[in-house]
């Protein structure tokens, strides 16, 4: 009765089809079935934000999403977003500002920050802090992370790559 189920989803632009156990969460699916190790599992109960991925253009916790529930969805991970260049400005800003240390939380933070800046490139420091509060970073003091996101928001507003949602 816990038979495997066939799922079909588009991950980073590639269609993939797998027979999986229903209990497999999306984070494990990406890591174990597809070898996409850039999505990190920090708590597996939806608190730390390290496992954040993009499903149908919205950030979600991959540990709180069953892979079978992503059937038919468009999933994007840090690997895909890096290859497409979609996060290049944020990644550069994180590096320039040293907004990461161990890097374990970084993929989740980048995707979360990008979601904010797509909707609100004008977000101020308080708004940025509020928005990324679902993503724990234990190494930085968050200060540099906020700096980096603020900088990219300014760049995107001034023409670079502003692509507003809605």
């Amino acid at each position: 009765m816990t038979d495997k189920i066939l799922v079909n989803m588009t991950v980073n632009g590639m269609v993939c089809e797998r027979w999986i156990e229903p209990r497999l969460h999306l984070g494990d699916f990406l890591r174990e079935e597809l070898g996409l190790k850039g999505t990190h599992l920090g708590c597996e109960h939806g608190v730390c934000g390290a496992c954040t991925v993009v499903v149908d253009d919205e950030i979600v916790r991959s540990c709180l999403t069953l892979a079978v529930q992503a059937d038919g969805a468009m999933v994007e991970t840090i690997e895909g977003k890096s290859e497409s260049g979609a996060l290049r400005d944020l990644q550069d800003a994180f590096l320039e500002r040293n907004a990461l240390q161990c890097g374990f939380c970084t993929a989740g933070l980048l995707l979360t920050a990008d979601a904010l800046l797509q909707a609100e490139p004008e977000a101020d420091r308080a708004r940025i802090r509020d928005h990324i509060s679902g993503n724990y970073c234990r190494c930085t003091g968050y200060h540099a992370v906020v700096d980096a996101i603020e900088t990219v928001g300014r760049q995107r507003r001034s023409g670079g790559r502003g692509h507003r949602h809605e």
């Binding site: 009765m1 969460h25 999403t65 069953l66």
Partner: peptide, 26 residues
Amino acid sequence: LIAGGQTLLATLGMRLSEPSLLIDIR
């Protein structure tokens, strides 16, 4: 029942409950 699953999946991971069937109502 499972919809968003944002509470349920955390409790399943902790094995606080062990349903035999999840019904996805989304």
